[in-house]
């Protein structure tokens, strides 16, 4: 069921080599699709890969550290002598837990990144920032919720605000989404997904998401990376990777008989 639409080629990726507790993450992703989906069982290290890319793994929790970002050239983000802090990486994350700022309204949450960063240098930059916020509000259909506080939102609404907030952040070089559509009903998800994909493509931003939904991967025409025990087990077109995974599962079942 792969979509034959020709998609633009990206050349991006992340390399993450860390010991996180008992898990040894060793992942070197060379990606060419605009959207990549990380699949894998719980505890395989998918979320840790995203957190490492953002620089959020605490120094206390990790040893043997190396994180590189590949956007054209290779840019070291973290190693024995270097640590680029999260706010200087230009990597945005919509986390699994929406983590909305409870003292701010939905509108203020979405505009947070603009307020948090140095003011726009030119009127053009200011217009661009306002356009990003307006686009995020429209894309995630948040107009009726703008003046509400997070405590007054449902789980799915919080998830949408979290994605809109990451989407609206300026100077984004890579978008990471950790199970972004959890709690959002299927119909709405089917409407939001293509718009989000299109919105990121229009800005030339590649995306990597973690999901357990096969449907989502197909809908995004994503490149799929299968992660197991902190390593890449398989990588490629969604239909091929999932077909191989199905064969593996069947072999396992047959061997048990």
């Amino acid at each position: 069921m792969s979509n034959p639409t020709i998609q633009p080629r990206f050349h991006h990726g992340i390399a993450v080599h860390h010991h996180v507790g008992a898990l040894h993450l060793s992942v070197d992703l060379n990606l060419t699709a605009p959207w990549t989906v990380l699949f894998g069982p719980s505890g395989s290290g998918k979320s840790s890969i995203l957190r490492a890319a953002c620089g959020l793994l605490s120094k206390r929790d990790i040893s043997f550290t190396r994180t590189d970002l590949r956007l054209g050239s290779i840019e070291p983000l973290q190693n024995a002598t270097l640590y680029t802090p999260p706010h200087r990486r230009g990597i945005r994350l919509a986390p699994q837990n929406p983590s909305l700022f409870p003292h701010l309204t939905v509108r203020q949450n979405i505009a947070f990144a603009h307020k948090a960063q140095p003011g726009p240098g030119s009127p053009g930059e200011q217009d661009h920032r306002e356009e990003l916020i307006a686009n995020a509000i429209t894309l995630f259909r948040l107009t009726p919720l703008l003046d509400r506080r997070p405590a007054d939102l449902s789980g799915g609404e919080r998830q949408r605000v979290s994605m809109a907030r990451a989407f609206a952040a300026p100077h984004c070089r890579l978008m990471l989404l950790d199970e972004p559509f959890t709690g959002i009903d299927r119909t709405l998800r089917d409407e939001l997904l293509p718009n989000l994909r299109h919105g990121l493509l229009a800005r030339g931003i590649p995306a990597i998401s973690v999901t357990h939904s096969v449907e989502e991967a197909f809908q995004l025409q994503a490149e799929v990376v299968l992660i197991r025990d902190g390593k890449v087990e398989d990588q490629g077109d969604v239909s091929q990777v999932l077909a191989r995974e199905r064969e593996r599962l069947l072999e396992n079942v047959n061997s048990l008989r």
Binding site: C54, G55, P86, R89, R92, L93, F112, A116
Partner: peptide
Amino acid sequence: VDRNLIDTARVLGASPLTVFRRI
């Protein structure tokens, strides 16, 4: 203060001082 809020603010581009002031 929930650590996740602090991490999220940092990923959105807020410096440590801004995180303290705004969150």
